[in-house]
Design a binder for these strands. Structure first.
Lengths: 209, 209
DNA sequence: GATTGAGTCATACGTTCGTTTCATTCAAAC
DNA sequence: GTTTGAATGAAACGAACGTATGACTCAATC
């Protein structure tokens, strides 16, 4: 295979290192060294370290967002009121598809997503575009129809729960791998466990006030 | 009130800044400046920045662990088989009690716990002692009795879910505060939402295999 | 063959970092 | 009054950081 251009190699190296050590724990020098590129290449291709981080985040999030969007389209084409379980699967499924437990790239991706969501450095989080908000708002509306009587605040809380469970699960799988996990079967099992767990949580009646 | 000694003031300042900017995003100079102490005081009282972080983490986690432990003791003193909902409350409750959304110290604490759990810096991660593992194992056993038929792997998955939901919820509250959140009422609401959400998720039958 | 411009390179700049050193302070012990 | 030792203070260390600069390479264009 032809070696990719410098820009791509920097993106790959940055994705690897940002995922493992976070934004502040990764130096431009380490990135360019791993990429086999010159130190100044980051400035030339991306402008700054922060903009490189944004590019890395976009490249990872975009396919997940697209899959979530397409999944919702498919559901809504069939019925205007999809059941909770199918909404959960359409939303959480792509998070598993894009970070399979059985290949190394998936491990990096899951770790990187946690970084993007929780890194204390603002540079790691200030990258989201309108596309991401749009998808979340669409799911929010669909869940609101499927769960009448749930206050908007509690619904928001539950949607955060979906992200939390999927992201943190994938994180721990690779931080302290247990025997047998990492196989394709284990990845598929985790996916179904998550759907079970989250469908039950989302479907439960509103908290009595 | 008498001004606390330098050591305590450094701990307070470090807790504040580590919570807000993470381990790598906080400099010893910023800590000592906020504490009104000399730069060398950190080295003198704690040895290094990493050991200061460990001291901060211990001070925050210990009361939570103790409360989780005591809560389980109380339940088990009443019945050898507590219901899932009460186990969930005993486990997740202290996480909310120790980080109330309505006071500033609680806000700091919640952010700090997320830092401890997820900061990419190695110095912030590998600090948990055997006491923390012990409590988790005890809850694991109690949940296993309350949820017969659930495989150990799926139970582990669900326990991770509890931590994920509580931690990430408290994180986002302070990352993008929405109007009205931060009030005592909102903090109490989040606590009850979490119990509802997690009890339903934990109680659901095992995934069909 | 001269020109151009994107890309790469070595290098340096100014800053900030964690840590160390050594002098100084000051209340308690002798 | 002298000694002692914990605590603090001012200053400096070397290393690593993100970024900027200017020269060089080299295929494409004229």
């Amino acid at each position: 295979m032809a070696t990719p251009d410098t820009r791509t190699q920097i993106l790959d190296a940055a994705e690897h290192l940002f995922a493992e050590h976070g934004y502040r724990g990764t130096s431009v020098r380490a990135i360019t060294k791993l990429a086999g590129a010159n130190l100044a290449a980051v400035g030339y291709h991306f402008g700054s370290k922060a903009e490189l981080m944004a590019a890395v985040a976009r490249r990872v999030i975009e396919p997940i967002n697209a899959a979530q969007c397409a999944g919702l389209d498919t559901l809504l084409a069939r019925t205007p009121d999809p059941p909770v379980s199918e909404l959960v699967e359409a939303f959480a499924g792509p998070l598993f598809d894009e970070m399979p437990a059985d290949d190394e790239g998936g491990a990096r991706t899951s770790r990187l997503i946690v970084t993007i969501l929780s890194d204390p450095a603002e540079e790691a989080r200030n990258w989201t575009g309108p596309a991401e908000d749009s998808v979340r708002e669409r799911y929010l509306a669909a869940f609101a129809r499927a769960l009448p009587g749930l206050s908007p605040q509690e619904l928001r809380f539950r949607m955060r729960g979906i992200l939390a469970v999927t992201a943190v699960d994938r994180l721990e799988v690779h931080q302290q791998p247990s025997p047998g996990c990492g196989s394709p079967a284990a990845g598929e099992a985790a996916r179904r466990w998550a759907i079970t767990f989250l469908t039950a949580a989302m479907s439960t009646p509103p908290t009595r006030t």
